[in-house]
Design a protein around this nucleic acid. Structure first.
Lengths: 147, 147
DNA sequence: TACACTAATTATAACGATTATAATGTAAGA
DNA sequence: TCTTACATTATAATCGTTATAATTAGTGTA
């Protein structure tokens, strides 16, 4: 399963003309197998055995590349440094109030909301449910024409 | 209405033994009347006319004081600096799956989710709905006793 | 294979937001 | 008034992140 993710990710990169370097391969692999949401420094330290000369800048640069390719999300919780999350298939729904169309919306990490809710209310929090409502592009177009 | 908020906030501070200094008063007042989510620097620059000698550290220190008093929330979006938001009565619900109890949960700023959803899906996003599910303390206690 | 061109990596410096420190000022209680 | 604790100020330090310049490596072409 994570092999599939890795293969897909490499495909995505290749298709947008991004070279697959050993460092990029390793960063992706680490992120896919990581159960936590690692910081840039986590990734750097985890890979410095394999790449003793790797620079922190390489990690940041490549995380940016992965982000703009949609492979990775940056999570800014309260702490000082960003965490990065490989995008899997967890998603929310965006719902059109006019025609009822539902579009998947990938977004990681509302963990903080759950943590805070648990902290504040004393609940043991199990999960949450988020839906986003609005008007889809087609319905927006129709309304604009009608006016 | 904002006068009520300010009065309440000052009450809250006083009741926890925090002194009301002119700087604190001004920071709170600015945040309450601010329609945006100002950064620490925004606040600093807005008040430097009134307090020409005020230090940035004072802003940060007091934002921390307000945060721990529950008056202010820190919002970490993607950008480099945190934004701060005076806590009003917008809230979500935390729902117990055992007894159905609903507890209010104050949490600001899922604006970013809406923005991103709009950006990704092309929807005009109007609002969202978030609910958090789990088990309340009483029900947790009952389950623990039963075992 | 050799060459040229472009992208990627590295090392390091710079930046900027936030925090820590030390000194000074200010309010409240005995 | 004196004392003590808390606030503020000014400034230095910290730390995550980004920019820069030099070097290295990959890719396409003759």
């Amino acid at each position: 399963m994570s092999e599939v993710h890795l293969k897909d990710a490499l495909e995505t990169l290749k298709s947008t003309g991004v070279r697959i370097t050993p460092q990029r391969h390793a960063i992706l692999e680490f992120m896919i197998h990581s159960t936590t949401h690692p910081t840039a420094d986590d990734i750097y330290r985890a890979l410095e055995r394999t790449f003793p000369n790797m620079s922190v800048a390489t990690v940041y640069n490549n995380l940016r590349v992965f982000k703009s390719a949609g492979l990775v999300k940056e999570l800014t919780y309260g702490d000082s440094s960003s965490r990065f999350d490989f995008v899997t298939n967890d998603h929310y729904h965006v719902i059109c109030n006019d025609c009822g169309k539902i579009v998947d919306f990938h977004y990681p990490g509302l963990d903080e909301v759950e943590h805070l809710a648990s902290h504040v209310t004393g609940f043991q929090v199990d999960y949450h449910r988020l839906e986003i409502y609005g008007t889809c592009q087609q319905c927006l177009g129709k309304t604009a024409q009608a006016q």
